[in-house]
Amino acid sequence: MTGKINNVLEETGNQMQFMSGFFKNIFRQGFEWNEFIRQCYIIGYKSFSLVGITGFILGFVLTLQSEPTLKAFGAESFVPSMVAISVIREIGPVIIALICAGKISSSIGAELGSMKVSEQIDAMEVSGANPMQYLVVPRILACILMIPVLTLMADTLAILGGFTASNLGGHFTFLLYFNKAFDALTFSDLLPSVAKTVFFGFAIGFIGCYKGYNSNRGTESVGVAANSAVVNASLWIIVLDAIAVQLTSIFAYS
């Protein structure tokens, strides 16, 4: 039992140390712009289709599911705003972050894990270069930038998906739908949800890098690194979301 507690404390300590290493290296001279842009491309652009399809279907399904219920109350004109609010406040950021944890955290974990196992990270360090600065900082920063962008795109497509679903029944024109959807939205819906995706992005990049960078020797540890990156990043996202919801309900909606 004490052994387990010790392990958890040690792991937390190591993560804190890794995190402070990350923050220190952001501001070191010689920021890796090229690598940052390359990572934004890999992390962001290459996830567009996955995230886009997910967003669209999210809005589509949500609309189809809620329409009959609201119709029973004669409130089907509230469908657009209900979908918009629930997607933008909560479902969009969380679902997209979880999907990105599966796609991005695991691939960062596997990539850095295999670099660790094949001694490439050691080689960088021994040559006097700084692997934190070259490998870790650009990846985490790219996640911090790209996850909010991906989420906003998914939100937009979700509303489009909602419109498509409503339009199957021919209730709304495009303009009417969007007016109804955006009427219900305020700045206090958008700002906290974008703010939390920044933290989700950090969690996705940070956990992926941490697990990969600290994977053990031996080839099977690459798989372990990728797997535990997904599990831990997902957990972080759920916990961060719970905290964010508490904070926003205190500050934004009161």
Partner: peptide, 17 residues
């Protein structure tokens, strides 16, 4: 500084792949 003066050839060569 010390590491720049010491070269290390790894068993696997450790090329950045």
């Amino acid at each position: 500084l010390l590491r720049t003066k010491v070269g290390f050839l790894f068993q696997s060569a450790a090329l950045y792949d």
